Amino acid sequence: MATGIDLGGLAPDFTLRDQFGQDITLSSYRGVKAVALVFYPFAFSGVCSGEMHGIRTRLDEFLTFDTEVLAISCDPVYALRAFSDADGLNFGLLSDFWPHGEVSRAYGVFDERGGSPERSSYVVDKTGRLTWAVHNPKPAARSADDLLDALRAAAG
C-alpha cells in the first residue's frame, strides 16, 4: 500500500494529457482553484467505474469557480476517451501512461508490482500546497463526501 508524500509542501507539478488529447498542467490552477487529484488504478474496472460515476453525479459540487477535480490513471488517452464516452464522464481524466507512472511515482502512489496508481487522493489548495490525502486499498472505494469536504476547505 502506498504511503504517499508529506502534506504541507508544494504539490509536484505535472502536465498530462486528458481524454481529449489536451495538455493539463497542475500549476495553471495555482492562485485560481483548489484541485482534487483522484488517482485510480484502471478505467472500466468495477470500483473505479463506481467512483468516477459518483463524481459525475455530483459534478456541480466538484467543479465550481473555486474547485476542480482531475482523475489520474496510467491508462492511455484513447482508453480514457472510451471510458469517458461510455460512462458520460465530463471531467478531466488524465493519462499518466508515458513515461509510465511518472506522476503517480512523484506523489508516492505508484504500485510497481501492478503497474498502476494506488487508490489515492490529494487536495491541492489555491496556493499549490498539499492539504489533505487519503490512501485506500484497491478494493475499497473512497468517500466522495470526505473528498468534497477537503476540497471545499482548501478553496477557502
Rank of each mutant, 00 (worst) to 15 (best):
R58Q: 15
T127C: 07
L151V: 07
Y40P: 01
G4S: 08
N90K: 12
D75N: 04
V134M: 08
E118N: 03
H53N: 13
L16Q: 01
L151F: 07
W132A: 06
A154N: 04
C74M: 05
N90Y: 09
D149H: 12
Y78C: 05
P139G: 08
D60T: 13
F110V: 01
S116E: 12
E61D: 15
L93D: 01
F62A: 04
N136A: 09
A144L: 15
A133M: 12
T67P: 00
A133S: 14
G101Y: 10
G88K: 10
D60S: 14
D125N: 15
T67R: 00
T57V: 12
R56C: 00
D18L: 06
K138T: 15
T67E: 00
G156P: 08
G92Q: 13
H53V: 15
F14Q: 03
L37G: 00
L37Q: 01
G108T: 06
P117W: 00
A141Q: 11
D6A: 14
G54K: 05
L7T: 13
D149E: 15
A140P: 00
A36L: 15
D13L: 11
P41D: 05
F62C: 01
A34S: 05
V109A: 02
P12W: 08
C74F: 00
L148N: 08
S143D: 12
L10Y: 15
H100F: 13
D23C: 09
P117K: 00
P12V: 06
T25V: 10
L80P: 06
F44W: 02
Y78P: 04
M1E: 10
E68C: 03
G21K: 06
A150S: 07
L26Q: 04
S120V: 05
D149A: 14
S116N: 14
K33A: 09
E112N: 14
F65M: 10
C48Y: 07
N90W: 12
S84G: 15
R81H: 11
C48F: 09
R142G: 13
Y40K: 02
Q22Y: 14
A43N: 05
Y78Q: 12
G54W: 07
L93N: 01
L16R: 00
G54S: 12
K33Q: 15
A86K: 14
F39W: 03
R119G: 05
E68D: 05
T131C: 06
Q22I: 07
D145F: 11
T25I: 13
N136Y: 14
T15F: 08
V124P: 03
P137R: 15
S84V: 05
V35Y: 00
F91N: 02
F42S: 12
E112Q: 14
K138C: 07
M52I: 15
L130M: 07
G156V: 11
G46V: 11
G128A: 07
A71S: 14
G46A: 11
F39C: 01
A2T: 11
A106E: 03
V124H: 02
G115W: 10
Q22E: 13
A11H: 08
H135M: 04
D87T: 10
V124Y: 04
D125R: 01
M52H: 10
D87R: 07
A11W: 04
G128I: 06
S120D: 03
P137N: 14
V134S: 11
D13W: 10
L94Y: 08
Y122T: 02
L89W: 01
D66G: 05
G88P: 03
V109E: 04
K138P: 13
